[in-house]
């Protein structure tokens, strides 16, 4: 390798920087924008209080006429589908809340599943516009469950296994 000192560049005749790479600069700018969008979306969503059913009316922020996220378990036998609307009740620690939702919840929605409903509490009924099924961090094989699900329902007392 040539280690002799480099001669000074001829500044008068030096060409303009041969390559200014614009793609990475644009990418850095896009990344900053994307980071900002992510943070603002998170903060906007965090504005909706995340309440358990039994905290409604008790915990600060979990009251009527403001957007909430309510977590509870769908009660057995409470799901009624009427065309495009779905009505059901959710419970958490003994408290129960009726929910109405315009549409059919997706995912693994069914009785006895814990859900999070986004919406607003109006005259004692939760008007939901988004239903998400929560999944616990427990994983059980499909055919090994007969005893397990019986145990779970005996514990909670409110939810018998779906027929």
């Amino acid at each position: 390798m040539d280690l002799s000192p480099r001669t000074l560049p001829d500044t008068a005749a030096s060409p303009t920087p041969s390559r200014r790479r614009w793609a990475p600069i644009v990418l850095v700018a896009l990344v900053l924008v994307a980071g900002g969008v992510i943070v603002t979306q998170f903060l906007r969503s965090a504005v909706d209080y995340y309440c358990n059913v039994d905290e409604i009316g008790r915990r600060d922020g979990c009251e009527e006429h403001r957007r909430l996220r309510v977590q509870g378990t769908v009660d057995a036998g409470s799901v009624h589908t009427d065309g495009a609307r779905t009505a059901f009740t959710i419970s958490f620690h003994g408290a129960t809340l009726p929910v109405r939702y315009d549409g059919q919840p997706g995912g693994i929605f069914e009785e006895c599943q814990p859900v999070v409903v986004h919406g607003e509490l109006v005259n004692g009924t939760f008007e939901g516009d988004r239903v998400e099924v929560k999944h616990s961090n427990e994983y059980v094989a499909e055919n090994a469950d007969r005893l397990d699900s019986g145990d779970v329902s005996a514990e909670s007392g409110t939810c018998s296994p779906p027929a």
């Binding site: 969503s45 997706g106 995912g107 693994i108 929605f109 239903v131 998400e132 999944h135």
Partner: peptide, 11 residues
Amino acid sequence: RLTWGVFWEWD
């Protein structure tokens, strides 16, 4: 999408 019912949530 398959389990929760939504692709994304600002969780």
